[in-house]
Amino acid sequence: MGGLSFDIAHLLAGALVLVSFLLLYQSRISALISAFALHAFVLALAVAWQAAIQDAPHLFVTAAIAFLFKGLVIPIVLNRMVVRLRIHRAIETVGGIGPTMLVGMGLVALAISVMLPATDLADPLTQEDLAFALAVVLLGLLMMVTRRNAVSQVIGFMSLENGLILAATGAKGMPLVVEISVAFSILIAFIVVGIFLFRIRERFDTVDVQALDRFRGERR
């Protein structure tokens, strides 16, 4: 049984890294949002599995937050926002999928080679969880660096936070305070982001939409 539960935890954490790679090369914004929903969904599964094998029921709350809030609410809100800003069909230049993916692979290798030797004393599950979590964090950072658009930067940031939650749940017995605070701060962070996206609209307007309006002679 120990072997199976380990394998499933391993599988889910590995899947999260895989979806992070998926996020890296989505060039269309609506596709990016869907990929992020998948990311949050995988995270929810991973956290729920940790809750089950660690016998820590409070972690189910974290899993539920990840599923409902990040997997459903945020993607829906973001989709609407993107439609309202008229950038949902916008294609972002990611700056060469090939190089980005190569850098991403390098980062995963780095995460594993740094974390595995350092966590020698911890049990193997924590050890691998931590390595994967660091990989997700680094991939999120990479995504924030390679993107210019505000929405995709926010998604990069949220995928990074997903990595942090994976790390926090992998750490056995991490007090509830931290989990709630993490979830809570994400909430605040998102409110901030929401306000920003509203104000940043100006920026998008000057980038493309206003130019289009002027071209059509319907300047607002």
Binding site: V137, F157, L160, M174, V178
Partner: peptide, 11 residues
């Protein structure tokens, strides 16, 4: 990003 890295360090 800074604050996220700090949380990872805290964990």
């Amino acid at each position: 990003v800074g604050i996220a890295l700090a949380l990872f360090g805290t964990i």
